[in-house]
Structure formats: structure tokens, C-alpha cells
Design a protein around this nucleic acid. Structure first.
Lengths: 333, 333
DNA sequence: ATGAAAGCGCTAACAT
DNA sequence: ATGTTAGCGCTTTCAT
């Protein structure tokens, strides 16, 4: 038989109100002795209050939904970890959902989270999403957008990365090192991230008076396979390039691999620059020069922002945090 | 104003009972018309039933806790993903918790999960845990153990990997290839996983009539840093070895790196064998030969087992699933 | 085929 | 300093 607050109350010879107050640290006006007595019984009986019952009346679940494309993509674990750490500090739990960049799955998950009365959602949306949600029930729950930008109702904050600046820094560095024919193996341009990186790339070329060549920019996905394919495409086009700027590290790593297979030495024949600085970036050969994104911090900040919104429901806020990248120079350039 | 079942009922001109029945597909004896009418109103009003209120009476939350050391460790994302996929299929959500192998954090999380009335827990315990839980409240909730073995109350199933066999297969392969001085850079032996791998290593040596040398076995942690250190130790001891069997891929990858820095070529001077087959194993140079663990499947099976237990509370089961490993031969051996 | 009513375990406004 | 009471939104038993 599950033990309830009522049991504790009668066992202690007090009312449930008194027990409840003690449980919730609203015990300003509870006598020391009562407090002690009740606490003792609670411990004895190993009583655990039901959060479900509590949520029923407080309308809060202390649960945050984390909706991301795929935890298996090396970009996300750190982000998830950051969010979880902050949530945990503040007494929240994280419910995690993988959408595979699928719009239907996204909506399904959001619905689930609303049904389960998650207090809020941290959301990295699908690269296929071009508009807001069909489901209006969504608007009942605050959302923090992370990494990928967009505007629609319900968004109470954003944590983004300065992709333009990161890309600009990286490509400028390449240019300074006298690489002049820089191919850009991009991820999809449906996302602001890709778009901004492309802009940074163009801007850097311009500032160094290098002409932009459309042929050198090819667009694919943020996946390892795309790196292999992309090099094939570039080679088949018979293009001349002395450096490759990759949309992310996953692409960069497979590009390096492919290039080596083709007998190119890196960075002598071709320099390779990545984006992200994933866990493995300094373990490959040659160690990857890349633009580090603060993934852990992103997750952490997003949770912080969300909790802030949740615990100050009066203040209408919509903060936008833009985190900086860092150029990590290693051996591949 | 949040819309409730009551609103739907009065709007449809029926009782809440009727609405509830329709919501839960217990509508055998609800007329077609009523059903249709109610469903229409529900859609119109964008009504989402509160799972919290439902849980209150059904005593089920359709939530599963996933307690792991660290999602940031490349071993876990796939496992987590497997669990999430299965959970999702069955209409469950996953609450995820990182313990950093810390016993206090473990107990804290377990408590949280009990408070939140998670229906069950999938649990990869800390490598520091040597006994069951202090907290008896835990016994109220079924647990599936994953990857790391142990016995205590509340355990309703296990999904493990045949570490002995995996290790045996890998080391035998090395031996067959005529590597005879095989160092073993192990993870901790507090875990059955490490212990079993050591046993497999010993058994293989024995079967190939190679004498076991205590000096060649060094024990550390499942972390990249340990790979670097371990090679230092081996070198300082001035030991002769022609192959290294690593406790996991993380160690193997840093071992390869270190060895290359020392001017050794792989696999000519030294062969390297890993364990896990993480995402990056075939992207490093040389591609890593390793013993693949079915991580995704482990997570998936664990969720399956748990859901089975949850949905058949009458049957007393305690299944133990032992998954097989696979030797993936690449270029490092 | 449908509804009335009790109750899940807790909190909070209001008394005392 | 402590207790009474009314709900939170749903499911379920039992009537009708």
C-alpha cells in the first residue's frame, strides 16, 4: 500500500496542511517540535510525496522537454548534457525527444509534451521547418529555440551562435594563410546556420579581394556521407581548390579521409577547416582545425533562459543570446 | 483558460464519462453520432487531455527514466536513442539523467523518478556501485539493468553484452595473426564488463598457449586520457609488445594517436584493437579494428523488456538478455 | 447507450 | 501555530 500525505498526517497527529507546509518549506509558522515529529515519521515511513498529485494543483510539473533531431549526431550530446545539468540544478527533469528532422514527429512530440504538461520546451527544430506550428495547443507552453533560428508564436527566448562571425573568422584565417581557392562544402541552406556561414564565407572572400566562385560552393547535408560525395563532385568538376571549408566537423572528417585516399596530403595539398569542434576533432589525423561552437553552454543557457521564464511568469521576456565561436587552430590547415 | 473534459462534455451535451470513454477508446457502447459529435468538438476546441490528471487516477505516467553515467560519452547516445525509439513506439516518454558515475547523484535521480512516478527505470549503474540501494522507496518501481550487471531487489530484467566472448574473439584474432605480446589496457575492474573482458583475454592466451604476463595488463578508466597515460606506463616499463587490446574505442583511439606520435606505425609495429565500435571508429587513421557492441539494440531491448513488464504486471518475469558482439576487422590490426 | 458521483493525493485560501 | 475545506481534471463503478 502506497503511503500518502494523509497517512503521515494521522500518524503524526496533525493535519495534512501542516505536513504539506513542512514538505514545501513553508514552515515559518510551524513549531519546531511538530516539524521534527513529522519529519521523523516521514523518514520512518519512507514517504515520497507524489509529484503528480502536486502538479495537479500547482499546474507545474518541473519537467522540461528537449526536442532535438538526433542525440546520435555528435553535435547534440553536449548540448543535451548542458541542458540537463542546468535543469537538474534547478530541480527540473528533462524529457528527451528525437525528431529525425521529421516535421510530423516534431508535432507529435510537442503534443505529447503539452499533454504531459511539460512546463516548457527547449527546441532545435527540423531543418525542414519553414513555418510555425499547425497545432495551436503549442502556444500554451513556452519555447526556447536553440541553435536554429526562426520566428513564431510561443517563442520566449533563443540561444544561437554567431555563425556568420565564426565562418568569417575561419575563412579569413585560411585566406591569411594564403589559401585562395577555398571550396565550401555546406550543409542545407534552409537553416539560418548554413545561410549565415555562407554569408561569412562570402564576406571574408570579399574583404580579401578574392572573387567568389559559385562552383566552389556545394550544398548537401550535415552528414558524414556528404563529405565523401562532395569531394567526388568537386573532383569530377575538375575544379582547382587548395582548401575546403566544411559545414561541420562530420563532413570535414570524411573529407579528410577521402582526400587522403586520393593521395592528397593535408594540409600541404589541401587544407581542411571544420565547424563545431566535436569530441573527436583532435583525435583524427591530422588534427582538425575548426570553429568551435559552445554546445554545452548552449544547452545550459537555454535551460537557464527557460527556467527564468518559468519562474518569472509576470515579466514578459524574449531574450536572444548569441554565443561566440572560437577558431581552434590545429594541424589540418 | 485551459479547456477541460468538462468543457467538452457540456459543449457536446454529454457527460464527462462519455467523453472519457471516447478519449480512451472504450467506446464499444457509445453511439456513432455521439462519438462523432464529441470528436468534432474536441478538434474544434483543440482540446488536449491532461496526462497528469489521468495519471492521478490510473497510477501510470507512461514515463520511463533512463539513468546513465554520461550522454557525452560516445557509448551512450545510441543506447539512449534505441531506448527512446522503442519507448516512443509504445507511447512512452523518456526522462534522461546523467549520473557521472556518482552514487549520490544516482540515488537522487532515482528518488526524483519515484516522486515523479516514472513507471520504470532503465539503468546503467555507476562503476562505483558495489551494492544495492539504500533507499527502499526504489523497490516500488521496476528496473531494467543495462550493460553493467549486478543483483538486487527491484530488478526486473537485464540486457547485457557477452563481453567474455567478444574479448575472446578479438584477442584470438590477434593471436591468429601472430601477434603474441598483447598488452591489455583495461577499464576498471569494478564492473563486470571489464572483468569479463579480462577473462576473455586470458582464456584466448591460454588456448593459444601464450603465457599470461601480469605486466602487460594495466587498469585505468574508460576515458581518452587513459590511453595516453597507459602507453607512457607501458613504455616506461620498457615492455615489449606488438599489439594493444584496449578496453574501449576511446582508449584505442588515443592509443593510436600516442603511438603514432612515438613514431610507431600501425599495424606494422603495433596492432591496436578496440571495443565498442563507436561512430568514429572507421573515420580515424588507420581505421580501427574493434569488437562491436550492439548499443542501439541494447537500449531498444531494454525498453522493450521494461514495457513488457509494465504492461503485464501479473506475470513475474526477470528476463536476462545477452547480446552478441561482432568483430569488425579494419586496418589497425 | 449514457450519466452521477466518488475519489486519486496534494495545495492553498481562509478560519480559528 | 494549526486545521477545514474546496478543488485540480480525470477515470471508474454502478445506476439507469
Amino acid at each position: 500500500m502506497k503511503i500518502t500525505i494523509k497517512d503521515i498526517a494521522s500518524l503524526s497527529g496533525v493535519s495534512t496542511t501542516t505536513v504539506s507546509k513542512i514538505l514545501n518549506n513553508k514552515d515559518k509558522d510551524i513549531s519546531k517540535e511538530t516539524r521534527k515529529k513529522v519529519l521523523k515519521i516521514i523518514k520512518e515511513k519512507n514517504y515520497v510525496p507524489s509529484t503528480v498529485a502536486r502538479s495537479m494543483v500547482t499546474r507545474k510539473t518541473k519537467t522540461i522537454g528537449l526536442v532535438i533531431p538526433d542525440i546520435t549526431n555528435p553535435f547534440f550530446p553536449e548540448l543535451a548534457r548542458g541542458a540537463e545539468d542546468k535543469a537538474n540544478e534547478a530541480g527540473y527533469n528533462i524529457m528527451f525527444c528525437n525528431t529525425d528532422d521529421d516535421l510530423d514527429k516534431e508535432e507529435k512530440y510537442i503534443n505529447m509534451l503539452v499533454e504531459k504538461m511539460a512546463d516548457g520546451i527547449i527546441f532545435t527544430q527540423s531543418d525542414k521547418r519553414t513555418e510555425g506550428f499547425k497545432n495551436t495547443s503549442l502556444n500554451s507552453i513556452p519555447i526556447i529555440l536553440i541553435d536554429r533560428d526562426m520566428d513564431y508564436e510561443g517563442i520566449k527566448g533563443k540561444v544561437l551562435v554567431n555563425n556568420f562571425d565564426g565562418s568569417y573568422k575561419g575563412v579569413s584565417y585560411l585566406l591569411k594563410k594564403d589559401y585562395k581557392k577555398i571550396a565550401f562544402i555546406s550543409g542545407p541552406l534552409t537553416l539560418n546556420t548554413g545561410l549565415e556561414r555562407l554569408k561569412g564565407y562570402k564576406k571574408a572572400l570579399k574583404d580579401f579581394s578574392v572573387e567568389y566562385d559559385d562552383n566552389l560552393v556545394i550544398i548537401g547535408e550535415y552528414k558524414r556521407e556528404w563529405g565523401f560525395e562532395a569531394i567526388d563532385i568537386l573532383m569530377n568538376k575538375n575544379l582547382d581548390f587548395d582548401a575546403v571549408f566544411c559545414g561541420n566537423d562530420l563532413i570535414a572528417i570524411s573529407v579528410i579521409k577521402k582526400l587522403k585516399e586520393l593521395g592528397k596530403s593535408i594540409p600541404e595539398d589541401v587544407a581542411v577547416l571544420g565547424f563545431d569542434d566535436i569530441y573527436m576533432a583532435d583525435l583524427i589525423e591530422p588534427e582538425l582545425t575548426t570553429i568551435r561552437q559552445p554546445n554545452y553552454k548552449m544547452g545550459y543557457k537555454a535551460a537557464e533562459l527557460l527556467i527564468n521564464v518559468l519562474e518569472n511568469p509576470n515579466k514578459k521576456m524574449n531574450e536572444k543570446i548569441i554565443l561566440d565561436t572560437e577558431l581552434i587552430i590545429r594541424k589540418s590547415t
